[in-house]
Computed example of a mutant assay.
Amino acid sequence: MLSLNTKRILIVDDAEDIREVAQVSLELLAGWEVLTASSGKEGVAKAIIEQPDAILLDVMMPGQDGPTTFQQLQANSATQHIPVILLTAKVMPGDSAHFASLGIVTVIYKPFEPLNLPVLMAEALGWSVD
């Protein structure tokens, strides 16, 4: 049974192994409810319906990438309030500042340490991990 203050996280990543590792980490270590989507288009649709407390969004995805997905989330009044954390393997100088200027909460770099993922997310979002 989920408590009333259980956070709901939507993970949007085309890599099944990343989704699974992140899901297990967030569910077992933080006790959060996790929803997943394997594409940006699916992620936007789920965000509209499910209204998660935060979205963990992969930058590099085929078809619709993370920045395009983020723009769609920001353009929709039903999802523009949901904080987004980007997940990326490619680190370019200036990316973090650029993403922050767009309204991204923070960037988490792959490969991430599964034991640290809930802490990194909670700190960025101002949440406590029980």
Results as ranks from 00 to 15, higher is better:
2 L>E: 14
3 S>V: 08
6 T>F: 07
6 T>N: 13
6 T>I: 09
6 T>G: 06
6 T>Q: 14
6 T>Y: 09
7 K>N: 03
7 K>M: 11
9 I>S: 06
10 L>Y: 02
11 I>C: 10
11 I>D: 04
15 A>H: 07
16 E>K: 02
17 D>K: 02
17 D>E: 06
17 D>A: 08
18 I>P: 00
19 R>M: 11
20 E>I: 15
20 E>L: 15
22 A>T: 06
23 Q>E: 10
23 Q>S: 13
24 V>G: 00
27 E>C: 02
28 L>C: 04
28 L>Q: 13
29 L>W: 00
29 L>T: 01
30 A>V: 09
30 A>S: 08
31 G>E: 06
31 G>C: 07
31 G>R: 03
32 W>M: 02
33 E>C: 11
33 E>M: 12
34 V>Q: 02
34 V>P: 03
37 A>L: 07
37 A>M: 01
38 S>P: 11
38 S>I: 00
39 S>T: 15
40 G>V: 03
41 K>I: 13
42 E>N: 09
42 E>H: 08
43 G>E: 06
44 V>E: 09
45 A>P: 00
46 K>C: 12
46 K>P: 04
47 A>C: 08
49 I>A: 13
51 Q>D: 14
51 Q>K: 15
51 Q>G: 04
52 P>S: 06
54 A>L: 08
54 A>M: 11
55 I>M: 02
58 D>H: 03
59 V>A: 04
59 V>S: 01
60 M>H: 09
60 M>Q: 12
60 M>T: 12
61 M>W: 10
61 M>D: 01
62 P>T: 12
63 G>V: 06
63 G>N: 10
64 Q>Y: 08
65 D>M: 02
65 D>K: 04
65 D>A: 01
67 P>R: 03
67 P>G: 13
68 T>L: 01
68 T>V: 07
69 T>M: 07
69 T>R: 02
70 F>A: 04
71 Q>P: 01
72 Q>N: 13
73 L>T: 00
76 N>D: 15
78 A>E: 14
78 A>N: 15
79 T>S: 03
80 Q>P: 01
81 H>E: 11
81 H>G: 13
82 I>L: 07
83 P>Q: 06
83 P>K: 06
84 V>S: 05
84 V>Q: 03
86 L>E: 00
86 L>F: 15
88 T>L: 07
88 T>M: 04
88 T>H: 01
89 A>C: 09
89 A>L: 05
90 K>F: 14
91 V>Q: 12
91 V>S: 12
92 M>F: 15
93 P>G: 11
93 P>N: 12
93 P>I: 10
94 G>F: 00
94 G>H: 05
94 G>K: 00
95 D>H: 02
96 S>E: 13
96 S>Q: 11
97 A>M: 10
97 A>C: 07
97 A>Y: 05
99 F>Y: 14
99 F>G: 01
100 A>K: 14
100 A>R: 11
102 L>K: 04
103 G>T: 05
104 I>L: 04
104 I>R: 00
104 I>K: 00
105 V>E: 09
106 T>C: 12
109 Y>Q: 15
111 P>G: 06
111 P>Y: 04
113 E>N: 15
114 P>W: 00
114 P>Y: 00
114 P>E: 01
115 L>N: 05
116 N>C: 09
117 L>M: 12
120 L>P: 08
121 M>S: 05
122 A>E: 07
124 A>V: 04
124 A>R: 11
124 A>F: 00
125 L>C: 11
127 W>E: 03
129 V>D: 07
129 V>Y: 03
130 D>W: 10
130 D>K: 09
130 D>S: 13
